[in-house]
Design a protein around this nucleic acid. Structure first.
Lengths: 198, 198
DNA sequence: CACCTCAGTCAACGGCCGTAGAATGAACGG
DNA sequence: CCGTTCATTCTACGGCCGTTGACTGAGGTG
């Protein structure tokens, strides 16, 4: 096997080099964020000249845009209970290994408008899917809270690497969160305070 | 009234200018993060020369350090239930208005090591306080999850300004989260899956 | 073979940044 | 009133960055 083409064709070579640049870019964007990642450093990590990166991608923004293309993560519909469980399953998978491109977006979203929009664009369909499944006036808010929990956990695990969250098993985390998710997705709204009026 | 000293003393003037610089720095760090905030821009916003900022603070890092000094946010101890409720109260207050210095830290913590450390240092005492109150083997993980939820909500509300989370009332958010917090703080660990063995 | 295409390099430019240091002039202290 | 301190400004340096455009040489094509 090894390779029938000892010398790769020009198109192959190009695609391979481009892939190498994108991989290096993804790694650096995920580790350092948009601003602190320099085209020169990406080029060096990919073993090419900085001019080549410009030649292929035109712009640092375009490079980020290509490197940070997110895999769609749509959960199946169903009852609120099922959607909550699907969200937990999706979370478990992400806690097992989160795609580097997604980490690149998360790392940069607080300081780069494009990354923030990309995050919003990825979160929105999930949000409306969850919202649609929750039979409640405040379904939208509940969905937003579920999203905030998911992202809070992922940020602390991968980006801040906070103590227990960084090394706990996905199953343990998901099991602890399950009642939260089910409550948020299905329980009726509380009247007000628990120790307020009667 | 107005002012007995028509001309402020030199020390007063200095403190006032320094305060102005710090306020401008806080605003910009909170809005743009560490990297995209420039000393020159802070100086201009404060109406002084960039050299003066250096003269007073020595270094951009030191300026950030001074601008991002967090007010301590220690919750009272007690039973797990009480601690969970205290955490909710603290969250409600932060959802009502989060100090700009805190937003500066949150905005920068994913791309600046100093901000990340500052965040960790602020979160740690709360974490151990919560951990101490939870009677469970996985108390540390539960505390981490509570922390992740709090910060996820605050990030989406103030930094990403996501739909419903950005404009919902603190009470509404806290009421929805209350069962989550109580469960995480007090419920026993689940055995494994809900639909697994008997 | 001659020609064109194109992956890849190299050197440079203009800009912005953090920072340094000298200069100024008003407030202070004797 | 004089000398000192010090708040404040101005100018400049060196560095890194994104980006450009000319160049090189091997690959494809007729």
């Amino acid at each position: 096997m090894t390779d029938p083409n000892v010398r790769p064709t020009r198109a192959q070579q190009r695609r391979q080099t481009e892939e190498g640049i994108l991989a290096a870019a993804r790694r650096m964007f995920a580790e350092l964020g948009y601003d602190r990642t320099t085209i020169r450093a990406v080029a060096k990590a990919a073993g090419v000249d900085a001019g080549l990166v410009m030649h292929y991608f035109g712009t640092k923004d375009e490079l980020f845009s290509r490197a940070a293309k997110l895999p769609p993560d749509d959960l199946p519909g169903g009852t609120a209970e099922q959607v909550a469980e699907a969200l937990l399953t999706s979370l478990a998978k992400r806690l097992d290994s989160e795609p580097v491109a997604s980490l690149a977006v998360l790392r940069s979203m607080l300081t780069n408008a494009d990354a923030a929009n990309r995050y919003r664009a990825a979160a929105e369909p999930q949000l409306s899917q969850i919202t649609a499944a929750i039979p409640s006036d405040d379904a939208e808010l509940r969905a937003s809270l579920l999203s905030a929990i998911v992202h809070g956990v992922i940020i602390e695990r991968y980006l801040l690497r906070l103590g227990r969250l960084a090394d706990a098993s996905p199953e343990q985390i998901v099991d602890l969160l399950r009642p939260c998710f089910q409550t948020l997705a299905t329980a009726p709204s509380p009247a007000s305070r628990p120790s307020g009026d009667g």
